[in-house]
Every structure is written in C-alpha cells, then in structure tokens.
Design a protein around this nucleic acid. Sequence first.
DNA 1: GCCATTCTGAAATTCTCGTTTCAGTGTTGA
DNA 2: TCAACACTGAAACGAGAATTTCAGAATGGC
Lengths: 277, 277
Amino acid sequence: MAVSIPATVETTVHATMDALTSAEKRAARTLLANYPTIGLAPVAEFGTAAGASAATVLRFISRLGFRSYPDFQRALRTELDERTKSPLQRSFEVPRQESERFLDRFFEQTAEIMRATAERIPASEFEAASRKLADSRHACHLAGGRFTDALAMYMEAHLRRARPGVRRLDGRIANRADQLLDIKAGDVVVLFDMRRYDDDLLETARQLKAARAFTILVTDEWISPISRFSKIVLPCRVSIDRIWDANTAMFALVEALIARTTELSWKTAESRIRAGD
Amino acid sequence: MAVSIPATVETTVHATMDALTSAEKRAARTLLANYPTIGLAPVAEFGTAAGASAATVLRFISRLGFRSYPDFQRALRTELDERTKSPLQRSFEVPRQESERFLDRFFEQTAEIMRATAERIPASEFEAASRKLADSRHACHLAGGRFTDALAMYMEAHLRRARPGVRRLDGRIANRADQLLDIKAGDVVVLFDMRRYDDDLLETARQLKAARAFTILVTDEWISPISRFSKIVLPCRVSIDRIWDANTAMFALVEALIARTTELSWKTAESRIRAGD
DNA sequence: GCCATTCTGAAATTCTCGTTTCAGTGTTGA
DNA sequence: TCAACACTGAAACGAGAATTTCAGAATGGC
C-alpha cells in the first residue's frame, strides 16, 4: 500500500513545474528557494524577487490550482502551522515512498556508497593525511588521471585557500619530469588513481618514492598499484550494485580532507581565506 | 557576560505584555499560541481568532512598536526566513570532539545535504536536462567559475564518452568572446555558478541567451542571477549547518546527469565508450 | 528568415484590507 | 449612585492590494 504524500504547496510546485512557462518557472524557483516566506509577502514583492511581474506570479499561482492569491497564502499558513505544531511528525512526512525518480534512486545509492566508504577508511589514516596536509613547512603537490584530474584540480583550488605552496602537476607526461625536479624530500603529494589505473602515474609515484616524498593515495576499492609507493592510502567505494562507477564518495572524501585540513591550520587559513574572498 | 537575546517579535510581546489592556492581551496570547502564522493573516482574521476586533489588534501591534500592520508582518517574515536559514550563519568554532569521528560526521552531514538536494530538484527539470544533454544534434558546452571549473571539467570528460560535440569553455574571459562565436542557436550550455557568483559568467550567460543557446544552470540554494538567462535551473543544497559550503551534492548531481544522459543515449554512447577504453 | 502563436509586464480596474473615528460600554473612585 | 475616564468595536474611509486587460515582445515551427 502506498503511503499518501501530503499535498503540500511545495510538492504541488514540483509536480506542476513541467507545465510552467519560463517566467513562471522563475517564480516557482523563487518560491522553492525562499519557502514559504516569499509566498506570504504581497504579490508585488514576490514578483520583484522572482524578476517577474505580479501578473506572472498570479498566473503561476492559479496554475498551481489556487483560486486566488489570498487562497494560496492561506494554504501556506495552514501548512506552516501544522509543521510547527508537530515537529515530530516532520521526520515521517516524506515516508519511504517507492522512489520512482531516477534522481532519488541515484542519490540513495550514492549515500549508501558514502556510508560504505566512511566505514572503510581508518580514522587514523584520515587524520594523518589531514595533519600532513595542514603542515605548511613542506610543499604540497597534486595529480590525477584521466577522470580524476578534475578532483585534483578541485582540491588544489581549495587547499590554496588554506595554505601556501600548493601546486598541481600537469597532466601531460612530457612535463612531469621537469615538475618532479621541484619536489623535495618530505613534500606531500596527493595522487588520485582508479580503475583503469594509469601507468604513467604509477611511474611518477615510483620516482616520488625514490625522491622520498610523502605520498597520499586516493583510490578505489580495488586499490591502485600505486599503494606500494604510498605512505597513506585512502580507498573509496565507487560502486555497489550499479553499472557505472560513482566518484561522489571520493569527492566527499576530498571535501572532508579540505575541511579537516583547514580546521587544523586555521591560524594560517583564516587570513588567507579573508584575503582571497 | 550576558548573552544578548535577539529581539524577536515574540520576545517583544512578552516584554510588552503587562502594558496591555485585556482585549489586547487576548490578541497577544493568540499570537503567541499560533506563532507566527496568525500574524501573517489579515487583521480581521487575527481579530476573530483573538475574539477581538481588528481595531484592537491594530492597537496591540502599534504598542509593540510597529508603525503599521504590514510592517509587523514584514518583521515576522524576516524572522521566519532567518530561522530556517540561520544555522549556517554561526561563526566558526573548532569542534570540541576530537578527530576520530570527523569523517563519519562529515559524511553524515553530506548525506543529509544530498537528501535535501534531491528533494528540491523537480524530477521534470532533471529529466529535461538529461534529455537535452543526450540529444547530440546540438553541440554541448560547459563552463564554471573559480571552484566549479573542476566540476565542468569532470563533466566534460565523462560526457565526451557518451556523445560527440562536447567542449569546455576556457576560463579566461579574454578567450570567451571567440568561443562564444562557435555557439549556435539551440546548442546546450551547462553553467556552474555558486556564491560568490561570477560576474563574467553572468555576462557570458546573457550573451548566450541572446544567441538563443539552451542554458542549463547548476547553482546553489540561493540561486545565481544567471537563472534569469537559463532554461533549466538545478539548485543544490551546499550547506545545512556547517560552516563551509559542501559541493558534494553538486558533484553527485553531475554524476546523476552523466548517468542518465548516458542511459538515454546508449546507442551512441556504447560504441564510444568501448572505443575509448 | 518569416509568420502564427504564446508569453509577458505595464497600466487600468476592482476590491479587499488596514486604518481612523466615534458612540457606546464598562470600570473606577468619590 | 454618579461622573470621569479608559476601553472596545462598528462603520466609514482611503490606501494599497489583487486582478484583468491588452499591446508589444519573445518564441517556435515552417
């Protein structure tokens, strides 16, 4: 038996979205983004906030099925009342409906992957990696493969805010040799490698080990051969019962590393962040 | 040191209570009992609920220090807005809990953010975006800002596997003008923009609209001004009660888009992927 | 690129709502 | 008991709100 979903204004908006014109959609989005307050304001104000005219907002409201704007506002108030009167009820509000939506299923699976990932990464490893990253006495280098280069890039951009001496290694192998010369013993290097593992990156890792760099490897559950040359290995689940591999857990791990590192080096980070913004 | 209490309407009512006449007190009690919804209703309704006349309610409101009833309502709305959005405005504090659980907590919060994101993205919008991306008759362009460029890059790498004609716009503005010339009416453009919103990207979006491109915007919960020039807007939660914004939900959305797009264009995608691996 | 169609916002219109007034009611103190 | 005073709500008023209309702009199909 399907549990009936309460027909809130919000769900109605979602359901109606399809049938809306573009200016009306702007109104819809504004409402969802400032739910429910903007709907409690006069139409004119709602219109301005949405970058549309009052008339458009009214058309939007009527398309949602309300007979008038005051009618719509009454619905919002009633809803608000019920929500605040039974806060406990809120967690049951959106019950285990069969999520037919692709997006919901996908996100659920992803959350599961993340849970599995968190389980498998030893806290001590994570902590050691963060501390090493937060230690700005040594330079920090990042590199990834074909698909993971974007992760390296993202991490670089954020790590730069927290500490000095962050650099991403160029993807092309030709340039690698030169770049490796800059790396000193004790420097931190974060490598991203997942199936199918990158041979060039493996070679790079070997040389880094020879140069006595401190290598942190972020890899998938099958673990890249680079682990041989790494001080710290952080394995992420990338699939559970899904056809495509999902790197979201890896991305989340990157964010966690950034967050923890920033926290640990807050003294340095604070001024850098303020200067950067 | 006294903790300063924020001057909410509610506290003002309490403070004013004993200066009120008996009918006014009825109004005050009604407001406190149905806070804040009854105050968002028309005066007449408020009056009826309180068993008093509209005039009495008005006198009550003015005694609270508001210049008019709409003024009072505006205060309530602002307050309501802040109540739902403010947890993230808390200033930075180093978490007392030591590192062990950092990763777990972080991932939990992230999962929560993802849930909230999935909830807010209308299925129709997601589906429409995927379909448009799967339609390889038109070219597809991607661009991001300072931190989101990495997302564009990641999406580019994967979308390339699924379909031809994918290109990422160069980050530097100088090159933008030339690149825009290549974009034809009907082309899909995926833009990533989050706080603090990128002015150059906004300008690019404006020109894209003029060129009649089909713009898909991936943004945060406060919605980039680019939404004005976009056909589809996909808002992601980036924070719930955490100091730093987290882009994991956005990354997951990108992966979901890639997955769905690949699914929809499987005929084309299959051979491309085989050739690429 | 052109035409039919749809969409949009400014302005005119209508009506509801907030506000004010004032007569009536209740209350207090002599 | 009566007068002075404060409180209250019904009704009149005017402001500002929602709604409708319509001409011009944008869009989509050929």
